[in-house]
Write a protein that binds this DNA or RNA. Structure first.
Length: 968
RNA sequence: GCUGAAGUGGUGGAAUUGGUAGACACGUUGGACUUAAAAUCCAAUGGCCAUUAUGGCCGUGCGGGUUCAAGUCCCGCCUUCAGUACCA
């Protein structure tokens, strides 16, 4: 009976599906545990071996937790809205819904082959109208909320309206637009409806505003900050420019402090928390108001160093600052205009590329120092960013290197306000060793004291206050795309109106072309049926728009992160009960939040931040009961591809083997890795068929082989280094794939894939199989019965073999060695799983199986628990052996074996003895020996050694040190 | 520049609180079994030296330090990867 993994795996995958083995229940006596993967975007390329890494890890943990007696929720779904499907639609004209459907089917098929314990009955797809109905609903809730700084949470907009009409807005402490006007209750009540809506929009948690956005002409869409890498789009690497557009935004800045504080309550890696902290970018300091001389204007700046206020010798405004045109003197106007134009032309990328070049222009205007009343020249310079703080800085050249460089470059005065510090070469930015001087009332103070005093004095004269600034910007929520959630919004006189919940979902309309226009007109602008009828409450044809009862609908769609910001709540509800809520109160209360979340670190400042934001919002409005969505988070590392390279002699059609490449001038070409064997030898026949250019090529071999070069890089179709998990499952089985992916190295680390190594774990599984089918070796050829059976009929043959060597060996009492091996393994595997070091437990299994094989262990009391330990890693083979041992229930329900220390206890142990740190001899001592006896024994041996080695040891230590130390 | 992580054989990687560095696996070499191949099994495998045998010396990026004892702790460097960046 051989280990037929294909048969076994298909059998048990079918069994699990039919018996709904992994279906989670929303009520249970057991404690709950929620294990979640970041759901995949189903691309057309399908899965490669890198994708399932995190899923395997989470699956091991989920299965382990089931053995440990938890009610485990382990769902899976698809993040199915997004750009690639739309790009494909643009190219082929195929509706993205259709390609998405096809891709999902492929993904599902591939995932099923790996034997995950997903509860598919809870699947979600973000592009499914029944799902995005609730994404739209959450959007409406955000629209109907404002952030109350006094209660420090979001509240329904009605409570704000009530306050407005009873007391106006002067005493309201809310997160809102900077430009909001002050009004009394009377004024509010007399405002027109439009005016009221306009004001409320400045308070809502999602709002419509003219914002400067990152516009990517090539993609025809707006990108969020986290979708831009080095000034170009993350996807495709297209240039990005700044552009003003009316967009929906999310007031995530209201949650900046809570998003920061919340990090202390969750179990994430330090590096990930640190990225979020940096992204939120809290800085504590002061805002200072400078009056502009000869103008009725003020400039507000943010500074983290109010203690250096007397060191200000100039101010710099961002070129985009609105005051620039107002204060520039006629003499300077030409220069300023030229500079502004030049800056506007430069892309974000150019601006970042030459950080070194110092540029700027004097406006001709002067501000007035709040304390000394001295004139301060006002400059503009592109080192000041319009998007951070107030877009203006008070420049303290002696304390800030950029200000210093700027001052040096333009010969501006550099007053020194630091005692005993030389600033002739560079600025002095060390806060901790600062004593302020030349600064009036701040003289002699350190950083801390001076800061406090400076803020106090600024407040006294009404020209500043302590302020905390965050780098976190409000998130733009509009995309000029087709394949995304439509907004549940229509416009009356230009003011957005929400469609009532009972009329949701608003489904995507059909359009002729999916391409956005260069000018930024969204694809939904092409839809003929895309207007809202407030009478019939349905979407109707555009030509019915009459501005009385039929109104235009929003043309933008939501960004990719909309659907992924709450999907983990959707899984909590079983599909059958999802009708009336996004998840029922009972389900939300039971499952609370995700206990373990596994996914890539690339989502650190995108998805993970937005999901935390929405969760906090939903909690504020009492829709969910938790403040943080993901208690523990692990980032799995990427699995890299190992590309294969052939070397073509330049200008010829001759290819030389890797070892000979230095003899020629060669070009490197990447070829399909699947044609290369474990020893880097390529199959030339396959290569010739692979691409026509190789068909009649000449090959120069070494030792009769063509050896390829290797390069480790990202797994990608364009490098021909993609390894398909289906092929691995076919050839070695899913259990081998699962074990091998874990065996490759630590989960969180990036590592290259190398198919050759899989024979190690595959061999282990074969050995395991043998261990459970051991017995006397029977020479079938000499067995007369052999000829009674038809060896070609596998069933008969196998049955014969099974009787002779089968699993039905007599059960015997386990030996001490058997139990030691087992309990050693239990201990290690349990520790490993709890620490997510799955790679080392694979080794532990290998050792255990080798030991038990040597021990010829046939005891059920050892073989059964061993299967349970291994079952999270290799679920198929363990199910099969488990059932062969006579169990009728799935192994998934078996309890995790209990570790017993007593089986590891030994009567004596070899202790190495060290002399001056060098190991000289070992001593076998009973474990329960007293300290005195040990000392005596050691001294005796010391004497012997002294004679043997002819030298006197100074100190003798018996290790392990915690047992005894003898110093003498 | 800042933040985070990491440097161990030919390779992936192990190594409890500091306690026999290199587990386990790949690869390589040799052997067994085969007409042969595959599969399987056995042995060797950090470097250098020595050998009849026991063995000896050097070794965890570099330079110091603490300690009876350092891959592990401390100080100072170097390198790599990841994230972030005129953030006032």
């Amino acid at each position: 009976m051989t280990y037929n993994f294909n048969e076994i795996e298909a059998k048990w995958q079918k069994y699990w599906a039919e018996n709904q083995t992994f279906k989670a229940e929303n009520t249970s006596d057991k404690p709950k545990y929620y294990v979640l993967d970041m759901f995949p975007y189903p691309s057309g390329a399908g899965l490669h071996v890198g994708h399932p890494l995190g899923y395997i890890a989470s699956d091991i943990y989920a299965r382990y937790k089931r053995h440990k007696g938890f009610n485990v929720l382990h769902p899976q779904g698809y993040d199915s809205f997004g750009l690639p499907a739309e790009q494909y639609a643009i190219q082929t004209g195929q509706h993205p819904a259709i390609t998405t459907e096809t891709n999902i089917a492929t993904y599902r098929k591939q995932l099923d082959k790996i034997g995950f314990s997903f509860d598919w009955s809870r699947e979600v797809r973000t592009s499914n109208p029944e799902y995005y109905k609730w994404t739209q609903w959450i959007f409406i809730q955000l629209f109907e909320s404002w952030y109350n700084n006094n209660t420090n949470k979001a509240e329904h907009i009605d409570t704000l309206i009530a306050k407005f009409s009873s007391e106006g807005n002067t005493n309201i402490n809310a997160v809102c637009d900077d430009n909001v006007i002050s009004f009394t209750a009377d004024e509010w009540n007399n405002f027109s409806s439009e005016k009221q809506q306009e004001i409320l929009l400045q308070y809502r948690l999602t709002y419509l505003a003219e914002t400067e956005v990152n516009w990517c002409p090539a993609l025809g869409t707006v990108l969020a900050n986290d979708e831009i890498v080095n000034g170009v789009s993350e996807r495709g690497g297209h240039p990005v420019i700044r552009k003003k557009m009316t967009q929906w935004s999310m007031r995530i800045s209201a949650y900046a402090e809570r998003l920061l504080q919340g990090l202390d309550t969750i179990d994430w890696t330090d590096s990930l928390k640190e990225s979020q902290r940096n992204w939120i970018g809290k800085s504590v300091g002061a805002s200072v108001t400078f009056n502009v001389k000869n103008h009725d204007e003020t400039i507000e700046v943010f500074t983290t160093r109010p203690d250096t206020i007397f060191g200000v010798s100039f101010m710099t405004l961002a070129p985009e600052h609105e005051l620039v045109t107002k204060i520039t003197t006629p003499e300077q106007k030409a220069d300023i205009d030229a500079y502004i134009q030049a800056t506007a032309k430069r892309s974000e990328r150019d601006r970042m590329a030459d950080v070194k070049t110092i540029s700027g222009v004097f406006t001709g205007a002067y501000a007035e120092h709040p304390f000394t009343k001295e004139p301060i020249p006002i400059w503009i310079g592109d080192y000041v960013l319009a998007g951070y703080g107030t877009g203006a800085v008070m420049a303290v050249p002696c304390g800030d290197q950029r200000d210093y460089d700027f001052a040096k470059h333009f010969n501006i005065d550099i007053p020194n306000i630091f005692e005993g510090v030389d600033i002739s070469q560079e600025a002095f930015a060390d806060k901790d060793n600062t004593i302020i001087t030349n600064s009036d009332f701040l003289n002699g103070m350190n950083y801390k004291k001076a800061t406090k005093r400076a803020i106090f004095e600024l407040e006294q004269i009404g020209q500043g206050e302590g302020k905390t600034n965050y780098r976190l910007r409000d998130a733009v929520f509009s995309r000029q795309r087709y394949w995304g959630e439509p907004f549940p919004v229509y416009y009356v006189n230009g003011m957005p109106q929400m469609i009532e919940q009972k009329h949701l979902p608003i489904t995507l309309p059909d359009v002729e072309k999916y391409l956005p226009t260069e000018s930024g007109e969204p694809p939904l602008g092409r839809a003929d049926v895309w207007a809202w009828d407030t009478q019939s409450n349905q979407v109707v044809s555009n030509d019915k728009i009459d501005d009385k009862t039929v109104f235009p609908l929003e043309l933008n769609t939501m960004p990719g992160w909309a659907g992924s910001s709450w999907y983990f709540f959707r899984y909590m509800e079983e599909q059958a009960n999802r009708g009336n809520t996004f998840a029922s109160e009972e389900a939300l209360q039971y499952w609370e939040n995700v206990d373990l979340y596994i996914g890539g670190s690339e989502h650190a400042t995108g998805h993970l931040l937005y999901a935390r934001f929405w969760t906090k919002f939903l909690k504020d409005r009492n829709f969910v009961g938790v403040d943080e969505p993901f208690k523990k988070l692990i980032n799995q590392g990427m699995i890299l591809g190992t590309s294969a390279i052939v070397y073509r002699v330049a200008g010829t059609n001759k290819y030389v083997s890797s070892g000979l490449k230095n003899d020629y001038e060669v070009e490197e070409l990447r070829v399909d890795v699947n044609m290369v064997n474990a020893s880097d030898e390529i199959d030339i026949e396959k290569l010739k068929q692979w691409q026509p250019q190789f068909a009649d090529a000449e090959f120069e071999l070494e030792d009769g082989k063509y050896i390829v070069g290797r390069e480790v890089e990202k797994m990608s179709k364009r490098w021909f280094n993609v390894v398909n998990p289906d092929n691995i499952c076919e050839q070695y089985g899913a259990d081998s794939l699962r074990l091998y992916e874990m065996f490759l190295g630590p989960l969180e680390q990036a590592k290259p894939w190398n198919t050759a190594g899989i024979t190690g774990v595959h061999g282990f599984l074969k050995k395991l199989w043998k261990l459970y089918h051991q017995g006397e070796d029977v020479n079938l050829k000499n067995d007369p019965n052999f000829y009674l059976h038809d060896p070609k009929k596998d069933g008969v043959y196998s049955a014969f073999k099974a009787v002779k060597r089968g699993i039905g060996l007599p059960d015997v009492e386990p030996t001490k060695d058997n139990l030691k091996t087992l309990h050693k393994t239990i201990k290690k595997v349990e520790e490993d799983i709890e620490n997510f070091s799955f790679n080392t437990s694979v080794s532990t299994f290998m050792i255990a199986v080798n030991e038990l094989t040597t021990q010829k262990c046939t005891s059920k009391a050892v073989l059964e628990p061993l299967l349970v330990l291994l079952s999270p890693y290799a679920p198929h083979i363990t199910e099969e052996l488990w059932s062969q041992l006579g169990n009728t229930q799935s192994i998934a329900t078996a309890p995790f074996p209990k570790f017993e220390e007593k089986h590891l206890v030994e009567s004596s142990k070899n202790y190495p003895i060290s002399f001056n740190g060098k190991m000289r001899f070992t001593l076998e001592l009973p474990l329960d020996m007293s300290k005195d006896d040990i000392e005596k024994t050691v001294m005796a041996h010391e004497k012997t050694q002294e004679q043997l080695q002819g030298r006197t040891p100074k100190k003798v230590i018996v290790v392990p040190g915690k047992i005894v130390n003898i110093v003498g």
